[in-house]
Nucleic acid binder design. Structure first.
Lengths: 329, 329
DNA sequence: CATCGTTGGTACAACGTTGTAAAGGGCCGT
DNA sequence: ACGGCCCTTTACAACGTTGTACCAACGATG
């Protein structure tokens, strides 16, 4: 691998002059510039970004910390974050936490090793205190229950859930279940809150047996939860799932039981993954503007890196309710 | 951020002694070790991996170059590669090419900037020559039509396609279409070859009008291709799709046309994404062992980095045919 | 002709880390 | 008491880059 030194030797100038040519700096005599450029081409010089960044005090990397790439919502989001970061000349380093608190703590800890300029973190099980020791610019994805001095991007989960359940109510459903409650996850609590608010607004009772817990938001869990709900003495006539994957699992179980969707039971998801749109029946779902989330996260992070002392921001991105076959016959 | 220097000053020893403690090196007097460890804790020292890697001549990064994270096969694979790389203390940097030749060339070019120790590349449109200028350790995913001196991991696409189509034949199908032909993609050619071989083996004619092209292997393209096939004077009674996404799109179109799957038309996919397993009907598909691919790729890369001159290897990973509802009533 | 400003180029240090070589100190055996 | 050996620690250089300070040449200006 050619270094500046090699190029300088070949061109017969100092290392710094080559550096100046490479960076388009200052005054270089035409004759020398030509010779340097020739030498650059001849050696096939490529700057060592590691060394450059060491010198410059930045790394050119950002970390994207998320639960799991296998979950469509996160892989779609990751793709968008990659694209947004590329526009800022950032390389993105993805770290999976598998949604565990240890995984997330480990990921946060590794951020301290100067490898990245900042991070976009999508926490699931993290406690508030875990962020305290963090000295690096970080943008959090998703709402959180407690107010932390941290930049944050997300949608209004309560209102989104409320709207989704409200849609079920207005189509005449009376026993509406929820799948996705979680003991530690902040967004789960918010969506549950929206669910309860919508029930209350419609004068429907809150029935604890209609709320199913899910620990990992995978399809299998949605299927299992639906299984349990259908085994109730009075099964639900609609289900609000806290993400599309759970909903797909629930749809599978419903169809396995010979139930028609939406006639016998309606299903709503959350995330608007493409998978849901192509499912049969296609899935009604809350559709966050993922591109807006990715763009806002990267922009916030850039601002924070440039000025660590600026006031913290909370950006709320828009969402819509995509009504499809799983609720509208 | 605390550096070795800060810690050394606090502990009253030399920088190197601190470095020795941090790296568990050699002989350090108990008393000094204690004081250094105290100082480490007090300052919250975290090594600057950039500087360390500069010194060590490695970067600790590998690049994973793939078309698009939004495609489940690649996001599932990426997750597995991340996990495998973590075991080797590698950070993974993901780059999306969107399947274009320019994107792939750009990604390869950026590998030269010393940012990564090597790369795992899943090419779609790359030509053979594009690899020539590459001086970095690289492992390619997927078969390629021409023999290059490059490490490679993949399944036997011809045999896999043959088996998939053979399964359709043996269930009595006679007009079997294919979706996913591509002018430049190596794997597409191989799967098409397997498709033709299976037809030939069954004594079925090869009908060009039953072969649909797809440029990006997305659901929408599968749906559109199926639309065209169903508009034929003699529509197919089975479709072999070159990936699951195309198959899901095809299933959508079939159901929109009121066709029953598999009674009226059978569908086979390729990749065994979880999405296909939960679709209704669930998707029969070729199931490559993705974990084996990821592990083999990372292992090959590690070997290549350690010894750039070793002979190149081609690893063939196993696959199975997952038979589900879309072919077996 | 002395002075000055502009233009072009260089040497050096530094970013934070680690390998190398060498030096300091204690202890042993003679 | 002395050389020799081990344990322990240190100074220095280096990885490849760039900012700072400085130097040299030159033409223009007074």
């Amino acid at each position: 691998m050619a270094t500046l030194k090699d190029v300088a030797a070949l061109a017969g100038v100092s290392v710094k002059t080559v550096s100046n040519v490479v960076n388009g700096h200052a005054f270089v005599k035409a004759e020398n510039r030509r010779r340097v450029e020739e030498a650059l081409a001849a050696t096939g010089y490529r700057p060592n970004l590691g060394a450059r960044n060491l010198r410059r005090g930045r790394t050119g990397f950002v970390a994207l910390v998320l639960p799991e790439l296998g979950i469509p919502y996160f892989s779609e989001l990751a793709g968008l974050v990659l694209r947004a970061a590329q526009a800022h000349e950032w390389n993105v380093l993805i770290e999976q936490t598998l949604g565990t608190r240890e995984g997330e703590r480990a990921a946060l800890a590794s951020l301290g090793t100067h490898l990245v300029d900042g991070a976009v973190v999508s926490p699931e099980a993290l406690l508030e205190g875990d962020f305290a020791e963090l000295s690096l610019p970080v943008v959090m994805l998703g709402e959180h229950t407690v107010d932390l001095p941290i930049d944050r991007v997300g949608i209004d989960n309560v209102r989104a859930a409320e709207e989704a359940v409200g849609h079920l109510v207005s189509s005449g459903r009376r026993r509406i279940a929820a799948i996705g409650a979680h003991p530690a996850r902040g967004t789960a609590a918010l969506r549950l809150q929206g669910y309860r608010a919508a029930l209350a607004a419609a004068g429907l009772p809150f029935d604890e047996s209609l709320v199913a817990t899910a620990l990992h938001y995978h399809r299998a869990e949605g299927a299992a939860a639906m299984e349990a709900l259908l085994a109730l003495p009075e099964p639900p006539d609609a289900v609000f799932c806290f993400n599309d994957l759970l909903a797909v699992g629930a749809l599978r179980t419903a169809s396995a039981h010979g139930l028609r969707v939406p006639e016998d039971v309606a299903v709503v998801g959350f995330d608007n993954t493409e998978e849901g749109a192509y499912h049969r029946p296609s899935l009604t779902t809350v559709a966050p503007d993922k591109a807006a989330i990715a763009d806002a996260a990267v922009t916030l992070l850039r601002h924070r890196v440039e000025d660590p002392d600026r006031p913290h921001e909370q950006v709320q991105t828009p969402f819509t309710l995509e009504i499809r076959e799983s609720t509208a016959g």
